[in-house]
Computed example of a mutant assay.
Amino acid sequence: MNGSSAFGDIDPEALSLRASSFGGQAAAYARERPGYPDAAVRWSLEPVSGPARPRVLDLGAGTGKLTESLLRLGADVVAVEPDPAMLAQLHTGLPSVRAMRGSAEEIPLPDASVEAVLVGQAMHWFDLDRALPEIRRVLAPGGVLAGLWNLDDDRISWVRGLKEVARSTVSFRQWHPGTGPLEGRGFRVVERAEFAHGQRRTAESMAATIATHSHALTLPEAERTELLARVLGYLRSTPETADGEFELPIVTVAVRALTG
Rank of each mutant, 00 (worst) to 15 (best):
10 I>L: 15
10 I>C: 02
11 D>T: 06
18 R>P: 00
19 A>P: 05
20 S>F: 03
24 G>Q: 13
27 A>K: 12
28 A>S: 12
28 A>K: 09
32 E>N: 11
32 E>K: 00
34 P>A: 05
35 G>F: 09
35 G>Y: 08
36 Y>H: 04
38 D>R: 13
40 A>P: 02
47 P>V: 08
47 P>Y: 06
48 V>K: 11
51 P>F: 14
51 P>D: 15
52 A>I: 11
54 P>W: 06
55 R>H: 12
60 G>M: 02
61 A>I: 08
61 A>S: 11
62 G>A: 03
63 T>K: 02
63 T>N: 01
63 T>L: 04
64 G>C: 02
66 L>H: 04
66 L>S: 06
69 S>V: 11
70 L>I: 13
70 L>C: 11
72 R>H: 13
74 G>N: 10
74 G>K: 07
75 A>N: 10
75 A>K: 04
78 V>I: 14
78 V>F: 01
81 E>Q: 10
83 D>I: 05
83 D>E: 10
87 L>I: 12
88 A>R: 14
91 H>F: 05
92 T>G: 09
98 R>N: 10
98 R>V: 12
99 A>T: 11
99 A>E: 06
100 M>T: 12
104 A>T: 07
104 A>N: 11
106 E>W: 01
107 I>G: 14
108 P>D: 13
111 D>I: 09
111 D>W: 00
111 D>R: 14
115 E>K: 04
116 A>S: 03
116 A>C: 06
117 V>F: 09
118 L>C: 09
122 A>L: 02
123 M>V: 13
126 F>I: 04
127 D>G: 07
127 D>T: 10
129 D>Q: 08
130 R>A: 15
130 R>L: 14
131 A>Q: 06
133 P>A: 07
134 E>M: 06
136 R>P: 00
136 R>T: 00
138 V>M: 01
139 L>G: 00
139 L>N: 02
139 L>C: 03
140 A>I: 00
141 P>S: 02
142 G>W: 04
143 G>M: 01
145 L>Q: 01
146 A>I: 10
146 A>L: 08
146 A>C: 13
148 L>Y: 05
150 N>Y: 10
153 D>M: 09
153 D>K: 08
154 D>Q: 06
154 D>V: 02
154 D>M: 07
155 R>I: 07
